Computed example of a mutant assay.
Amino acid sequence: MTSQPQHNYWGYDSAPGIPTVYSLTDSGSIRVLWALEDLVEKGLLESYNLKAFERSKTTAKAPESMKEGFRLGTAPILTVSPASAPDEPPTPFVEGRLILQFLSDHYAKGLWDSPAPEDQARNVFFQEFAGTTVSTLTSLTLTMDLIPEATPWPLKPLVKLLFVPLMSVFKGKLVVPFKFLEDTLSEDKPWFGGAKLGLADFCMIFPLDTCVARRYFDAAKYPKVAQWHKTVHEMPTYQRAVKKMGEYNGIKS
């Protein structure tokens, strides 16, 4: 191996050792923290190292120090060296879905897999659906929502006049994917991964948490999705993940 291993590629015959996760407040790091807590609770991972960072109070950006984990400095980041050679330069893994897949491949021992081919396909589909359709529409809606909030007072009324209607348009576009998610869940398959918790559920939590916190989501219209969300929030593994993040959806833990 070179002194700078290729990111998102595990080039060792040895199993990975104790991972380090770089987490940022109010970010998609929640997906990886929740997954790591689940692995620890199930006894599949002894522990993990946490480097928690706070967003700038003025710009909401990640600090430059996050680039220690990976040059882009965007959360989440996971770094790990081989268990047999802990002093080797750690390999960085970035992009939440890819980090989750790495954890599944190297630590989970089938914990989040389903024996049913239909659920396997469903799990893959909803990982992609969460990261593209739901996350994209949520991000666009949130952007239109936050710009007026961040605008200085003299310009705020004018900016609100422009952006509030745009926010409403994007918020309306969330109705179709929400209805699709609602129709997908059932008593037999209460998880987006199918009959059991899967990677799709970890992927889905961040955009849905954002939609619930910002009131883009109407629980009365989508009771099965609301129940899924409630179930996740009641899980000790999720609660520990939120606490370790430090601040999530503007609420300090």
Results as ranks from 00 to 15, higher is better:
residue 170 F to T: 06
residue 232 V to D: 05
residue 62 A to Y: 00
residue 208 L to C: 04
residue 165 P to G: 08
residue 203 C to W: 06
residue 240 R to K: 15
residue 249 N to L: 12
residue 194 G to E: 00
residue 210 T to Q: 11
residue 73 G to P: 04
residue 33 L to A: 13
residue 87 D to Q: 12
residue 151 T to W: 08
residue 175 V to M: 00
residue 4 Q to E: 12
residue 243 K to F: 12
residue 239 Q to E: 05
residue 51 K to V: 15
residue 66 M to R: 11
residue 94 V to C: 03
residue 173 K to R: 15
residue 150 A to M: 13
residue 161 L to R: 14
residue 10 W to I: 12
residue 230 K to M: 05
residue 16 P to W: 12
residue 8 N to Q: 03
residue 129 F to T: 04
residue 160 K to F: 07
residue 172 G to S: 04
residue 227 Q to C: 02
residue 84 S to I: 02
residue 192 F to N: 01
residue 76 P to M: 13
residue 244 K to P: 00
residue 132 T to A: 14
residue 94 V to L: 01
residue 92 P to K: 04
residue 175 V to R: 01
residue 114 S to G: 07
residue 124 V to A: 14
residue 67 K to M: 06
residue 61 K to L: 09
residue 118 E to R: 10
residue 116 A to T: 12
residue 160 K to M: 14
residue 134 V to N: 07
residue 128 E to G: 00
residue 221 K to I: 02
residue 155 L to D: 12
residue 2 T to P: 12
residue 204 M to Y: 06
residue 134 V to E: 05
residue 87 D to I: 00
residue 212 V to S: 11
residue 2 T to G: 04
residue 159 V to R: 04
residue 16 P to S: 11
residue 228 W to L: 05
residue 19 P to F: 14
residue 150 A to T: 12
residue 85 A to C: 00
residue 154 P to I: 06
residue 22 Y to C: 09
residue 223 P to H: 10
residue 169 V to D: 07
residue 134 V to R: 03
residue 240 R to A: 12
residue 104 S to Y: 02
residue 82 P to G: 03
residue 183 D to A: 11
residue 101 Q to S: 01
residue 34 W to N: 08
residue 76 P to H: 05
residue 134 V to M: 06
residue 114 S to D: 14
residue 26 D to Y: 11
residue 102 F to K: 02
residue 221 K to Q: 12
residue 126 F to M: 04
residue 145 D to M: 13
residue 221 K to M: 07
residue 9 Y to R: 08
residue 132 T to R: 11
residue 121 A to C: 01
residue 23 S to F: 05
residue 193 G to W: 03
residue 248 Y to C: 02
residue 195 A to P: 01
residue 91 T to Y: 10
residue 54 E to K: 12
residue 81 S to T: 09
residue 208 L to V: 13
residue 10 W to N: 11
residue 53 F to Y: 15
residue 10 W to Y: 08
residue 249 N to P: 00
residue 40 V to Q: 04
residue 145 D to S: 14
residue 149 E to G: 00
residue 9 Y to T: 09
residue 232 V to G: 02
residue 160 K to Q: 15
residue 37 E to D: 09
residue 214 R to Q: 13
residue 195 A to I: 05
residue 235 M to R: 15
residue 7 H to S: 12
residue 185 L to Y: 01
residue 74 T to S: 06
residue 39 L to H: 08
residue 223 P to C: 10
residue 253 S to H: 14
residue 147 I to V: 15
residue 116 A to K: 13
residue 70 F to G: 04
